[in-house]
Amino acid sequence: MFCDLFLYRVSSLQKMRAGTEEAESSGYQRVVLKNASPHHYLKVRLVLEDESARVSAVDLKTFITSCLRSLFGEVGAALNVDVLKYDEETLTALLRVPSRGLVKLWSSLTLQGFYQNRACAFRVLQVSPFLLALTGNSRDLQLD
């Protein structure tokens, strides 16, 4: 589903396009970045009691904001959550949130039990500071 979404870190896109201009890069360089990611990414699925219900991407975003508001008030609702990708068939979404808002978002989603007065639950499938990590999940491996 998310197969067309990739994320890479490169030194510079222009250098990358030029390709060969980096003669100096023949040396070996290693940099370790600790907790450097400004965002975290979540793959979540909305499970509804009424399986036939349709939820559009806009509905989902509104619902997520209301989840944040109900637990953390206006401060929570002001949290900048992005719906990067959404599949209406499976109700699976890829969310981006600033790293410092991750715990707030995660707890708001987990504690939400109702969507339009019907039972619902958010399943948090994957969480990572690297968007690329969400393009593969070995728990989805079907071998039968």
Partner: peptide, 30 residues
């Protein structure tokens, strides 16, 4: 489209490649 996103150190950039079905501003501020 290759899109450069935020980087952490001076030189580095994030970029991602995805098909052109950009979301509206309400959904995503990417």
């Amino acid at each position: 489209r290759s899109r450069a996103l935020r980087g952490h150190d001076r030189e580095s950039l994030f970029f991602c490649v995805y098909s052109e079905n950009s979301s509206s501003d309400f959904l995503s501020t990417l």
